[in-house]
Amino acid sequence: MARITKRLGWTLSAIIVAATPALSGGPVDEQLIIDGETEIITRAPAPEGHPLDEVTSGWLYRTDETRALEADSFQNPGMLYVEQGETIWNTVDGAAGKSCASCHGDGKEFLKGIGAHYPKWDADAKRPINVELQINKCREANMQAEPYKFDAPDQRALTTFIRHQSLGEPVSIDLTSGDMQSWWEKGKETYYTRMGQLNLSCASCHEDNNGNYIRADHLSQGNVNGFPTYRLKQSEMVSLHNRFRGCIRDTRAAFPAAFSDELMALEVYVTWRGTGLGVETPSVRQ
């Protein structure tokens, strides 16, 4: 008897936790309009086959102050990296004596809308590549320059510049090209794998508990439309694979190498989960 009441008590509290993220503050009901002119889609109907009804940007889960920083490009510290990235775009490097601009011309023209559609199938590499790997491909093949090491400051700045040229463009990736579908499947498997001593999957935090607080952190859906992102905690641009590795480390699991098959597959899958959200790069997060 006593046990039954107790079980009931637990079931009730579990139901409350699961069903009413709004009680714990949920995402805010606000619009992101950068500099009062560029409207960013922060809520979108989920793509077919997605477990949730609506996909939401991490911006909606941040404090008033953090949201305001992102909405004003003069205050957004990430904009400095956009400028740096543009300089790198135009700077000659490598034995071929070329810059990105030598082949592509003005970055602001050429790059419009491009960054919103990575990762992409790469027929040469026979795997999906993201913006960072596209940069390295160009550096090696066309500039005869060394590929950037993971998270080199120039890699982050140039990636930020490239993605920023898609500001507001809805994220979408092409799962029909090459083997993208099987990479999506592999990424999905990782997403739902319980890992580490804490035995949590990405879904434990970002699917089952978005809208709830884990200690001081307001959990979002963990979408990637804002990357690279300016993190106030680190006063730095943070790359997507750095964030993935951080979340994996927090479960007390060993984390895979950046750009490994495992993390590229995860990037394909998680990018798909945020289909329809506007690119926010450089987003500002806590």
Partner: peptide, 29 residues
Amino acid sequence: VFGEQTVMPGFYTLKVGANVDDEHKGKTI
């Protein structure tokens, strides 16, 4: 107690997730 789906970690069990890092491998929380 709650079922496999619970997100609450087990604090005294070695039935944990994949790829536990070296620092925590084989140890309970």
